[in-house]
Design a protein around this nucleic acid. Structure first.
Length: 187
DNA sequence: CTCCCGATAT
DNA sequence: ATATCAGGAG
């Protein structure tokens, strides 16, 4: 997920909910061409924001989130993206997963492990966790992984989940982890 | 727990 | 037709 600033990254991650980041990357350039600043997003109409992000799905919710997010950013953070999980989670449209992702990708900080759909699926396939909820899986991963590897590990697993260990039809024959994966279809 | 929701692979 | 995609809010 390419980004020129922490704010652009946060917008991209908010838009990426239940949507491929490939599609988000198609929407981001138009969005920031139309809305050049945080203030521009805060003062834009919901309809104008919706027009730019429609193809990412959940566009009404996301438009409200982005407008509210920009408004709070201006009112309480001087228009800058905050650098703690607690502050990020208070922003509209930002939950724990998005907050943790922004913290890691934008600032190189890790207060937790990002557990998204890919991390959930692959952690279970590798038997790193048998839990189902993101919160419980995160607890298991925090026990297993050295903190210094949290950000890099998550990036690698998510890339792996996008390209190789995909949900619909995992490409076990191409997987570098097939030897140590209990769920591998290849011996 | 349900709702939000378009695009794509199977 | 159905499953899935860097989830969050009510």
């Amino acid at each position: 997920m390419n980004h020129r600033s922490p704010y652009e990254l946060m917008v991209a991650v908010i838009l990426s909910a239940q949507c491929t980041d490939e599609r988000v990357n198609k929407v981001i350039p138009g969005f920031f061409k139309r809305f050049k600043t945080v203030k521009a997003v805060a003062s834009a109409s919901l309809e104008d924001i919706e027009d730019e992000i429609r193809s990412t799905g959940f566009f009404r919710n996301k438009a409200k989130s982005l407008k509210g997010n920009a408004t709070v950013l201006l009112a309480e953070h001087g228009g800058e993206v905050p650098r703690t999980l607690a502050e990020l989670v208070k922003l509209p449209g930002v939950g724990r997963k998005t907050a943790s992702a922004v913290l890691g990708a934008a600032f190189g900080l890790a207060e937790g492990v990002v557990v998204d759909t890919h991390v959930t699926r692959i952690s279970r396939l590798l038997h790193l966790s048998s839990e189902k909820t993101p919160e419980k899986i995160e607890r298991d991963l925090i026990e297993i992984l050295p903190k210094k590897d949290w950000i890099r590990w998550t990036h690698m697993i998510i890339d792996h989940g996008r390209a190789v260990c995909v949900a619909r039809r995992p490409k076990c024959a191409e997987c570098v982890l097939s030897d140590l994966c209990p769920s591998s279809e290849v011996k």
